[in-house]
């Protein structure tokens, strides 16, 4: 009897692992470790603060997930943040300086310009990967360099200031019914992504293309437009994150996205997205992003230095990838020989 129940609980753990990946385990470990290391960690204020800090990474990770499930990745997300931030800030500052009364006009046009600029990077990535057959690695690391260079050229590396205060009062720190606006926006986008991935043909195609592009094509999927969509949507959602960050820091920065590619890929992989494509769930990616921020927050409270934090983040990514491989082997290995 005991053997049977042991076998069952073992099976449940295995199933959970196959479905969710390593995340639940890591989350529990992190919660225990940090609450022992810092008595500030589990306070409600800190937890709410953590969720608010997470939104930027959550949005980028959702975009990154689209690229990953198609079997690629987007290393240019940091650049997309920079380009969006710098473009939106410059347009806003220019319009605001020209007519200080047209505050909302300046903010609206600035935001649109920023999203457009980010979208252009996404279109470049998508066209390169889908239509020209460039590997996602080369294509996105290329646009990463190009975009970052342009952002620096535009600003000379100096933060763009002179933004209307209303920007940060709304998109930065504003609240509706007591809930921070960035959280509301992120929740809406995450729900949209959830519907896309679970309830639309297009979302299913993204997964199918990553799982087996040839089989998808023979099943009537247009592989090229699907890949293009993945990179463009990734850029657009990253651009929204860029706007929120710009509002938060109240200036246009070309240096805001430095570690974003690494962090977003880590969040996705920890959230169970397969690096081979074909597997990825929105809710797990959101949790994965929150987990990364939680670890950073916990390390800050425990007074772990930023250099050591880089070490931890890198190790986490590698551990997540190794676990992903084990998981993949377990999924594929069921077929015997």
């Amino acid at each position: 009897m005991t053997e049977v129940t042991e076998g069952n609980s073992h099976n449940i753990l295995k199933k959970l692992f196959l479905r969710m990946g390593v995340l639940p385990v890591l989350l529990v470990i992190a919660l225990i470790v940090f609450s022992l290391m810092s008595n500030q960690f589990l306070k409600v204020d800190n937890l709410v603060n953590m969720v608010r800090q997470s939104v930027y990474l959550i949005l980028v990770s959702l975009g990154q997930m689209l690229a990953l499930v198609t079997g690629g990745f987007d290393l240019s997300v940091g650049t997309i943040l920079a380009v969006t931030s710098v473009t939106s800030a410059m347009v806003m500052a220019h319009l605001f300086a020209g007519d200080p009364n047209a505050i909302w006009f300046a903010i609206t046009v600035g935001c649109l310009a920023g999203v457009l600029a980010g979208g252009v990077v996404g279109i470049a990535n998508g066209v390169g990967v889908a239509y020209l057959g460039v590997s996602p690695f080369i294509m996105t690391i290329g646009t990463q360099s190009v975009g970052f260079g342009i952002a620096l050229l535009m600003t000379g590396g100096v933060p763009v200031s002179g933004l209307p205060g209303e920007l940060s009062e709304t998109l930065g720190f504003g609240r509706i019914l007591g809930i921070p606006i960035p959280i509301i926006l992120t929740a809406i986008i995450a729900i949209g992504f959830y519907i896309l991935m679970t309830r639309t043909a297009r979302g299913n195609y993204l997964l199918a293309v990553g799982g087996n592009a040839k089989a998808a094509a023979l099943s009537g999927v247009n592989v090229r437009t699907t890949l293009l969509l993945a990179y463009v949507l990734c850029a657009l959602v990253t651009a929204v994150s860029g706007l929120l960050l710009t509002a938060r820091v109240e200036s246009g920065e070309s240096n805001i996205g430095g570690t974003m590619a690494l962090e977003s890929i880590a969040a996705c992989v920890i959230g169970g997205v397969s690096l081979r494509g074909g597997i990825g769930r929105v809710e797990n990616v959101v949790l994965g992003a929150i987990f990364i921020v939680l670890v950073q927050n916990g390390m800050n409270l425990s007074e772990v230095g930023s250099y050591a934090q880089m070490v931890v983040l890198g190790i986490l990514l590698i551990v997540a990838v190794i676990t992903d491989q084990i998981r993949h082997r377990m999924i594929a290995g069921g077929s015997g020989i």
Binding site: A201, N204, Y205, L207, A208, G211, N212, K214, A215, A216, L218, S219, G220, V221, S274, R276, G277, G278, I279, I331, A332
Partner: peptide
């Protein structure tokens, strides 16, 4: 190589060609 999306369930594979035409 060409027939199945291996990470998918049998159900998702069966539905794939029908998604747009039959399942909306």
């Amino acid at each position: 190589a060409e027939g199945l999306v291996l990470p998918f369930t049998a159900r998702s594979n069966i539905a794939l060609p029908a998604l747009r035409a039959k399942l909306k």
